[in-house]
Amino acid sequence: MGLISMLFTWPLAPVHGVIRLGELIQQQVEHELRNPAAVRRRLEAIEEARRSGQISEEEEAQAVEEVLRLMSGPRRG
């Protein structure tokens, strides 16, 4: 039975591969969003942009809120 099922499911192997690749990419992105070192670097970049006058206080607050929202958002999977 294994050979027969393999013959019928073989044409779908590329589809399964693409789905698995998408899942792996999603896991990596979510890991990067929640990585404390990456979050700290983003927050430091926002702070530096504010100090250098590239962004306003309101923009800084929005950017910090967005970073924290992404970091603490619901986990998938």
Rank of each mutant, 00 (worst) to 15 (best):
M1P: 09
M1C: 08
G2N: 09
L3C: 05
L3S: 08
L3E: 08
I4F: 07
I4K: 07
S5N: 08
S5C: 07
L7M: 13
L7C: 10
L7F: 08
F8P: 03
F8T: 07
F8R: 07
W10L: 15
W10P: 00
P11I: 06
L12P: 06
A13S: 05
V15G: 13
V15A: 14
V15E: 13
V15M: 12
H16V: 14
H16W: 14
H16F: 15
V18M: 13
I19Q: 12
I19G: 07
R20K: 15
R20F: 09
R20V: 13
R20D: 14
G22L: 12
G22N: 14
G22A: 11
E23H: 12
E23T: 13
E23A: 13
E23Y: 10
L24P: 04
L24S: 12
L24Q: 14
I25L: 15
I25F: 10
Q26D: 15
Q27T: 15
Q28V: 09
V29P: 09
V29H: 12
V29C: 10
V29R: 14
E30I: 11
E30P: 12
E32Y: 12
E32F: 15
L33K: 15
L33M: 14
R34Q: 12
R34V: 09
R34I: 11
N35W: 07
N35Q: 09
N35I: 07
N35H: 13
P36F: 06
P36W: 06
A37I: 13
A37P: 03
A37N: 11
A37D: 15
A38K: 10
V39H: 03
V39K: 07
R40G: 06
R40C: 10
R41S: 11
R41E: 12
L43W: 04
L43G: 04
E44Q: 12
E44G: 01
E44H: 07
A45M: 08
A45E: 10
I46G: 08
I46R: 06
I46C: 05
E47S: 11
E47A: 14
E48W: 00
A49I: 04
A49K: 06
A49M: 11
A49T: 02
R50G: 05
R51K: 08
R51N: 09
S52W: 00
G53I: 08
G53F: 02
Q54D: 05
S56V: 02
S56K: 03
S56R: 04
S56Y: 00
S56T: 15
E57P: 00
E57Y: 01
E57M: 02
E58R: 05
E58W: 01
E59R: 06
E60Y: 04
E60D: 03
E60L: 01
A61D: 04
A61C: 00
A61K: 10
A61I: 05
Q62T: 05
Q62L: 09
Q62C: 00
A63S: 06
A63W: 00
A63R: 04
A63G: 01
V64G: 02
V64C: 02
E65W: 03
E65N: 04
E65L: 06
E66T: 03
E66S: 07
E66A: 13
E66M: 08
E66Q: 07
E66K: 04
V67N: 01
V67R: 00
V67C: 05
L68M: 08
R69G: 04
L70N: 06
M71E: 07
M71D: 02
S72F: 06
G73H: 02
G73V: 02
G73I: 03
G73Y: 00
P74N: 00
P74M: 01
P74D: 05
R76D: 02
G77M: 01
G77C: 01
